[in-house]
Amino acid sequence: MKVLIAEDEPISNLWLKNTLTRWGYEVISTRNGYEAWEVLKRIDPPGVVILDWEMPKMKGTEVCEKIREDPRISDRTYIILITGRDLSEDIELGFKAGADDYLKKPFDNQRLKAKLETARRTLEL
């Protein structure tokens, strides 16, 4: 399965890319929401998009909204927001923007693996 990562923090971006690659995913890595959106417009949409909430140029929630407005991408893409935000209002905003799931930073391998497995099963339906 193809996964697009949009994470502006270099160490987190590299960790996600290396971890997902090791698990057998085809990974496309970007450094901000704008880059992620540009990639999404050009390629066959990945099954999963992992978006950091707070990024320069375009926030993760803005990318969510753009994905959900584009029928070519929306129906075939599972979106996971990663965030340090923990308030229920923030989580609600993420879901309203179009996220399917979220991970609170810092997160561990097992939780990430479980979220990706949920994404895979959902997309297979």
Rank of each mutant, 00 (worst) to 15 (best):
V49R: 07
D8G: 06
V39R: 08
F95G: 00
D8H: 14
K57V: 05
V63Y: 02
W53I: 09
K113F: 03
Y102A: 04
L125P: 10
D44P: 09
N109Y: 02
D44A: 10
L20N: 07
L20K: 07
E7I: 00
I67L: 08
A119F: 09
P46V: 14
K66Y: 05
W15Q: 13
D108E: 09
Y34G: 13
I5R: 01
L40I: 07
E89T: 12
S74E: 13
F107M: 01
M1C: 04
K115H: 14
I43V: 12
I5C: 09
Y102H: 05
V48I: 09
R72Q: 04
K2R: 14
R68S: 03
G84M: 03
C64H: 00
C64W: 10
R42N: 09
A36I: 09
T83E: 07
A119V: 03
L123I: 15
D52F: 04
E117D: 14
I80V: 15
G94W: 02
Y78C: 06
A99K: 07
K104L: 12
T61D: 14
E117L: 15
D90A: 12
I73T: 11
E62A: 09
C64M: 13
I28Q: 01
K104W: 03
D75R: 10
A6V: 08
E26Y: 11
L116I: 05
R121D: 06
N32D: 14
Y25A: 13
R22K: 12
S29V: 12
F107H: 01
L40Q: 13
D52I: 01
P56M: 10
G98F: 05
K113N: 09
I28Y: 00
L116C: 11
A97R: 15
S88H: 15
I67N: 04
N32L: 01
T118S: 13
K113T: 10
G94T: 00
T118V: 13
E38Y: 00
L116Y: 04
R121M: 10
V48L: 11
E124W: 02
T118K: 14
L93E: 12
F95L: 04
R31Q: 15
G47V: 10
R22I: 01
G94M: 03
L20Q: 12
A114T: 11
P56Y: 08
L40A: 05
L116V: 00
E124N: 13
L40Y: 00
I79D: 13
R42L: 11
E65L: 15
S74T: 10
D101M: 07
N13T: 07
A99W: 03
S12A: 13
I82G: 08
N13V: 01
K105E: 04
E65P: 06
V27K: 01
I50G: 01
S29F: 12
E38L: 10
K115D: 11
T19D: 03
K2P: 00
R120I: 08
L87R: 12
R120T: 10
D100H: 07
I28D: 04
P10Y: 10
I43T: 06
T61L: 02
T19L: 01
V49N: 11
G33F: 05
G47T: 08
E26S: 03
S88D: 14
D90I: 08
L103F: 01
E38K: 11
V27T: 11
C64E: 13
W37L: 13
W37Y: 11
R31E: 15
L81E: 01
S12P: 07
T122W: 13
I5F: 04
I80C: 15
K105S: 12
N109L: 02
D70P: 05
N18R: 02
